[in-house]
Computed example of a mutant assay.
Amino acid sequence: MERRVRATGHENVSAEHASTFELTSDDWLTPAGDCILAVEADTVPADFDAEFVEACQSHEATITVTLRADGHEEAIEGRGHPDLSFENDRSMVGRTSDYVDDRTVMVGADKAAADLDREFVDALAAGADLECVLRAEE
């Protein structure tokens, strides 16, 4: 089961956070937002349908996030969790830890923002369009 999100890079994308990555629907980004990869996301967790959310609410679920921008592709694999609520109406966060809040869309991610290829990050900092594909499988 897949869902797509489109967003846009921003000049303040640094992707230096060691334990999370984030997409936000906000249209701005300060340098402090070192986990944020893109802004103006057209879909937020609260927009996901119940079927997709339910598929993610299992410890057995594998969640893969594929990020594409300017000819670059990054795949991040993590897992689901029963406490994933997909209720946030502003941003989605992938986490290397098991911490869950209303922004969390995956836990146990095998990459955070700091682990992403620097050419990919540079493309986002130059304002490249980002396609994010979330895939949930059991």
Rank of each mutant, 00 (worst) to 15 (best):
M1G: 13
R3S: 13
R3C: 11
R4S: 09
V5W: 11
V5K: 07
V5C: 09
R6K: 15
A7D: 14
T8G: 10
G9P: 14
H10A: 04
E11P: 12
E11I: 03
N12S: 05
N12D: 10
S14T: 15
A15L: 06
E16S: 08
A18N: 13
A18Q: 15
S19G: 13
T20I: 12
E22R: 11
E22G: 04
T24H: 05
T24G: 03
S25F: 06
D27I: 04
W28F: 14
W28T: 12
P31C: 02
P31S: 04
G33N: 02
D34S: 05
I36P: 03
L37W: 05
L37H: 04
L37F: 08
A38M: 08
A38S: 10
V39D: 08
A41W: 05
T43I: 01
T43E: 06
A46K: 11
F48R: 01
D49C: 00
E51F: 00
A55T: 01
C56K: 10
C56L: 10
C56E: 11
S58K: 14
S58T: 10
E60Q: 05
A61E: 06
A61R: 02
T62N: 01
T62W: 01
T62L: 02
T62Q: 11
I63G: 10
I63M: 07
I63A: 09
T64M: 02
T64S: 08
V65P: 00
V65E: 00
V65S: 01
L67F: 04
A69Y: 07
H72M: 01
H72K: 00
E74V: 03
A75C: 00
I76M: 01
E77L: 00
R79M: 09
R79L: 06
R79S: 14
R79Y: 12
S85E: 05
E87V: 04
E87N: 09
R90C: 03
S91M: 03
S91Q: 05
M92V: 04
G94I: 03
G94H: 10
G94L: 03
R95G: 14
R95W: 14
T96Y: 13
T96M: 15
S97L: 14
D98V: 14
D98P: 13
Y99V: 09
D101N: 15
D102G: 15
V105D: 10
V105S: 05
M106E: 08
V107K: 14
G108V: 09
A109K: 10
K111C: 00
A114Y: 05
D115G: 04
L116T: 11
L116R: 06
D117N: 11
D117H: 03
D117L: 02
D117I: 02
R118A: 13
R118P: 08
E119Y: 10
F120D: 07
D122I: 04
A123R: 10
A123S: 15
A123L: 12
A125H: 11
A125F: 12
A125W: 09
A126T: 01
D129E: 14
D129W: 01
E131C: 03
C132N: 07
C132G: 07
C132W: 13
L134Y: 14
R135H: 12
R135G: 04
E137C: 00
E138G: 13
E138P: 13
